[in-house]
């Protein structure tokens, strides 16, 4: 009898904890978790496990101000790459190109941007698939 009561309380506690997390929070966790995998597969070789980049060859992903300022273009960068150009990151000039990922679905782009946008010292919140789709339509 006692055991049943304890089990019941435990289950109730779980339900309360889960439902206390807002839907937005759960969405963020889903995006961030999947984004980790996309990052590992598509970004990490060059940008590094901690988003540190590689010497002066590959820029780090730690420039929070740059990411904020170019937020609407990030999806375009991931999907269509960056052509030979000079980009200033953390006050340092990087020149070169970034390869495109034309086959990457919008949801993967949203997930990986949510991961990058909330790792390596960045705090941008969830970047949703709707935002990504809207941004992709405006790619130059």
């Amino acid at each position: 009898m006692k055991l049943k009561v304890i089990a019941f309380i435990a289950v109730m506690l779980c339900v309360i904890i889960v439902s206390c997390q807002s839907e937005a929070e759960q969405e963020y966790k889903r995006y961030y978790g999947s984004g980790t995998l996309v990052y590992k597969a598509k970004c990490q070789n060059c940008h590094g496990e901690k988003g540190e980049g590689l010497s002066n060859l590959i820029p780090p992903l730690t420039d929070t101000a740059y990411l904020k300022k170019n937020k609407a273009q990030l999806a375009c960068f991931v999907k269509y790459g960056i052509k030979e150009t000079i980009t200033t990151i953390n006050g340092k000039a990087y020149e070169g190109a970034m390869p495109a990922n034309v086959d990457m679905p919008a949801i993967d782009i949203a997930e990986v941007l949510t991961y990058i946008g909330n790792s390596f010292g960045n705090k941008m919140g969830t970047i949703t698939v709707d935002e990504v789709n809207a941004d992709l339509e405006k790619c130059k």
Partner: peptide
């Protein structure tokens, strides 16, 4: 030098 796949990580480690 233009290798997009494994070279950056190879040379990160070689460094």
């Amino acid at each position: 030098t233009t290798c997009p796949s494994i070279c950056p990580i190879m040379h990160r480690n070689m460094l």
